[in-house]
Amino acid sequence: MTIAMWTITAMVVLFLIAPLVVVVAVSFSASPVFNLPPPSWSARWYERLWRLRDFWPAVRTSLEIAALSTAISLVLGTLCAIAVERGRFPGRDALVTFAVSPLMMPGLVVGVALLQMLRQVGFRDAWMSLLIGHIVITLPYVIRTVLASLSLFDFTLIDAARTLGCSYPKALLKVMVPVLAPAFLTSGLFAFLASMDNYPISIFLTDARTKTLPVQILTYLEETPDPTIAAISTGLIVMTIVVLLLADRLVGLRRIAEL
């Protein structure tokens, strides 16, 4: 049985890694069709990507929206987690269920609903709409992770720090923030990546001028399916690897897997 388990595991690892390997391989292919292994290697798709300029505004929008929605979520989410963990008020369980529920709801439905409401109140700014929509999906990540981390935090440590002469804010900063730092980091990273990748909400909130990267990628794929997409996908894979390496150095992969 052990042998079967490890055989399946080895095959699953190959299966999971295969798409990423394929994307990187195709991006360095000289051929415009997706032949594998490529007949010869080249960097022409990267040059084309550089020249095209279609993608850069979308990359910029996506980075802006992802960074801002993550930052806002970290502030709102941490405050909410502290209230739930330390506060004594009714309905805290219900509050947590509600705050985390956007993760379990179909993104497309959340997007459609938000679009309809924004149209009804006459709000048409695409960039702001995207930000509003993306916070809905980044906020639950932060609340869930920071809450899990806070529930393990020993609050008497703050009293101890105060007894030893720290002011209350200083005690929070010196004792609580370092303990919560891994939770901030992991939830921030996953929130950021979720926003960068989001398509179902963004598709309803973009307009002709303001597009996020996933929307631009799918539009481009429909018009000209060539390995340029593989080149930009390779860029996204490299970005993810860098982010994960950073997280591993700071937090450790095992803690990331807990989430």
């Binding site: 295969a18 798409p19 990423l20 990748d197 794929l221 593989a230 996908s233 996204l236 894979i237 992969l253």
Partner: peptide, 18 residues
């Protein structure tokens, strides 16, 4: 863990394209 978390983080659009 790398084999599970890396593809998870890369995003649906890239993988579906792959």
């Amino acid at each position: 863990l790398v084999a599970l978390i890396l593809p998870l983080s890369v995003g649906v659009v890239v993988k579906a394209f792959a």
